[in-house]
């Protein structure tokens, strides 16, 4: 299968995309649970899914957004002076206010907000800029067997940038991982295969109806793409966030085990415990907090789920801290 991956590479490669900047919302260093070794994870903005429990709500929208955290504001009012639309304004009570609905994300306010009350989620970066950041930690990758992970959002929504970045990283000798949700055209996902040392593949649940309710789409394409991806020979780690009462039924777990047990190249299944600690980010983005009001899954439950999956011959990683 490795041979066919290489063959695909030439066909799918397009140099034209080399100058496409990406919209990056975070670069996290010393990431240790996003693939092997010590890694730098590059988070790209935009996602075709809208999971109710999303921990990075700034990852969903494909455009830059503003985080607004009034508790940091020192009311210097510089943002009001530079705002072209009046979104940054002063109220009748002489308090600084932000009308998000008329904001066009000029970014001018962010430039003058030294307190960090206004922060941009989503920065345009070139492949070279990202690689410069990534390569700073090359010594750590070499020591640990680590590398770069591209995550999101769904990184392959920015397919040209992601492919270019993967290619640059591969050329620099840096191990690459892509964390994908799988809700893509297969032709797009396939393009990443030649440059991706390992895929991290998110499974949100096996009940398609339930999937549609909580995620916004049925799961057919995700499952189909996973089958196709496994056939390419690319190593895949499955990642599942366990949300109690949402995607943890015995039926769903058994269906997961059945699906994965029948696939090649699944190197591991990583269970992640849902937690509701990202709520403040929703507030800072002016969004409704959609996070389910449920407790994190109990350790015993995760162990039980892990055992059901292991029974299908899968290599399961439980959360290190439970």
């Amino acid at each position: 299968m490795a041979g066919s991956r290489t063959a695909d590479a030439g066909a799918a490669t397009s140099r034209a995309g080399a100058s496409t900047p990406g919209l990056v919302f975070d670069i996290k260093r010393f990431a240790v649970h996003d693939g092997p070794g010590v890694r730098t994870t590059v988070f790209l903005k935009g996602c075709p899914l809208s999971c109710a429990w999303c921990h990075n709500p700034e990852s969903i929208d494909r455009k830059p957004q503003l985080f607004y955290r009034p508790d940091r504001c020192i009311e210097c009012l510089e943002c009001v002076k530079v705002c072209p639309t009046g979104a940054q304004s002063v109220s009748d009570e002489n308090r600084r206010v932000y009308f998000r609905e008329i904001c066009d994300i000029s970014e001018l306010c962010v430039d003058v907000c030294y307190s960090g009350a206004l922060e941009l989620a989503g920065k345009r970066m070139s492949v070279d800029e990202v690689m410069e950041a990534v390569l700073q930690d090359a010594d750590f990758y070499n020591e640990s067997g680590g590398g770069m992970t591209i995550s999101g959002g769904e990184p392959l929504l920015q397919a040209e940038f992601t492919i270019d970045l993967l290619r640059a990283s591969t050329e620099a000798g840096v191990h690459t991982s892509v964390d994908t949700c799988g809700q893509l055209q297969w032709s797009t996902l396939k393009r990443a295969v030649p440059y991706t040392s390992m895929f991290l593949y998110d499974l949100k649940g096996m009940d398609s109806e339930n999937h549609k309710t909580n995620i916004g789409v049925p799961n057919d394409r995700i499952v189909d793409n996973l089958r196709l991806l496994s056939e390419t020979g690319a190593p895949i780690e499955i990642r599942m966030v366990i949300v109690p009462g949402v995607n943890d039924s015995d039926q769903q777990i058994d269906d997961t085990a059945e699906l994965l047990g029948g696939l090649q190249n699944i190197v591991g299944v990583r269970l992640l415990a849902y937690h509701s600690m990202a709520g403040s980010k929703y507030v800072a983005l002016g969004l409704d907090n959609t996070m389910p009001k449920v407790e994190a899954p109990a350790k015993e439950q995760l162990v039980a789920i892990g055992e059901r999956l292991e029974a299908a011959g899968l290599n399961v990683h439980l959360p290190a801290k439970m």
Partner: peptide
């Protein structure tokens, strides 16, 4: 959480060695 589990221990040791 950064140093939890076997992966975390490996990362921790790698940090020291680097």
């Amino acid at each position: 959480t950064a140093v939890a589990g076997e992966e975390g221990l490996h990362a921790f040791v790698s940090l020291i060695k680097t």
